[in-house]
Design a binder for these strands. Structure first.
Lengths: 220, 220
DNA sequence: CAAAAATTTTAGCCCAATCTAAAAATTAGT
DNA sequence: ACTAATTTTTAGATTGGGCTAAAATTTTTG
């Protein structure tokens, strides 16, 4: 499916409205997001419907079809990966990345986006903390993120682990860490990506990057 | 000046034709490069002329004005920097980079391109060996490139060095290398970017990446 | 529940960038 | 130096994406 940057933007906006307002997107709401006249939106909705990207009935608002949803998800993936690139590699401030990523996201080459993903070491969250869908369009749940993605000051609770080696589980036992244990992130050490953690509000310890990658937590 | 990607492409093509054929670009030649009908080219030439980007008289071909030349040079800068990024950071093959760079080059943010330049460590040549203009639009002369940018099989002659430490010059003396010495590049070793070099057609040696960055050569 | 308000769509227009067909200008050949 | 061939431009149409003004539909409210 060959979509123009404009068509992609409409899909992204419809996706975001649905996510935020939990209902179908109205013509006026879309117009406000995109910054065009409502009449222009109606035209575009007809075009997107004819390409089977949205479900559209006059006066009734729109929802994304399965294929429209896939396009929107891939666009969001590209946007957020470029944001990570701009922030971590080019050292842009996290407020500055959005506008440039807005342009970069429309460059469509699966090869490009997948290599970028690998180059960035498969980040799960963008600099704003929003989750990055993987190549299959799956999001890491916001309420189940790796500890490494938590920020200093965050309080989190352990929900799961990505590693089931006995030796690793024994290591956790040794630290008295188990599902439901609560952490407070005290500091993130850039030089080796280790973290200083306050466990159960009374024991402080240092966890290596590897361990922080494995622990799946939820903010509390 | 707000130029569309299409307008930029026309300027780039006119620049390239002028460079390659050393004369003004004709409507038909431009049409072949861009892949459009000559009539479409005529329309666009009128538009570019009205923006003072080209010198255009009916039936007489076109040349870039000063401001048109600046736009073209900046576009080439962006294109070649992205090519370096794709080849060196994302490990694309050097044949694959062109098409993707063709899209990336149209993202206009001086901040972006300058930070990218710095991130790539101010490369002077793209993966095809073409020179990259700096932020002021100045090209490194093609006949004075770093040895590191030469390709296996190239024969070159030493024209200068970028480093004037006594210890370094003594090192060169020890290898019997001086201005005018001729090299043949035998191999480039990706793992440490060192090069196997045949000096004066009779002595083979290994030069480290650092040394190859310092030696300024010209193809012969 | 009917009238007023708000939303959405239609109708008709514009601009950028393209096309084809035909006319005009330039260049080349004898 | 004419005529033929080539190149370039004009004329008129098309498509995508946008606009305004007016008509149609839905929603709100007295």
């Amino acid at each position: 499916m060959h979509l123009s940057a404009t068509e992609e933007n409409y899909l992204k906006v419809i996706y975001k409205i649905a996510e935020r307002e939990k209902k179908s997107a109205s013509t006026n709401t879309i117009a406000k997001y995109i910054g065009t006249a409502p009449a222009s939106v109606t035209d575009m909705l007809k075009r997107l419907a004819s390409k089977q990207l949205i479900n559209y009935q006059k006066y009734r608002g729109v929802t994304l079809t399965t294929s429209g949803g896939k396009e929107a998800t891939q666009l969001i993936r590209r946007h957020r990966l470029w944001e990570v690139f701009l922030a971590t590699k080019l050292r842009f401030s996290w407020e500055a990345v959005h506008d440039i990523a807005e342009e970069l996201e429309h460059i469509k080459s699966d090869e490009l986006v997948n290599r970028l993903d690998a180059f960035l070491d498969y980040p799960k969250f963008d600099p704003h903390g929003d989750p990055i869908p993987n190549a299959q369009g799956k999001f890491t749940l916001r309420n189940q993120m790796a500890l490494i993605d938590a920020l200093p000051g965050n309080k989190v609770v352990l929900l799961g682990v990505r590693e089931h080696e006995t030796s690793f589980l024994e290591y956790l036992n040794g630290l008295n860490i188990s599902l439901g244990t609560e952490f407070t992130v005290k500091a993130f050490n850039h030089f080796d990506k280790s973290m200083n953690i306050l466990i159960d509000h009374n024991r402080e310890t240092l966890l290596s990057e590897k361990v922080c990658q494995i622990l799946l937590v939820k903010k509390i």
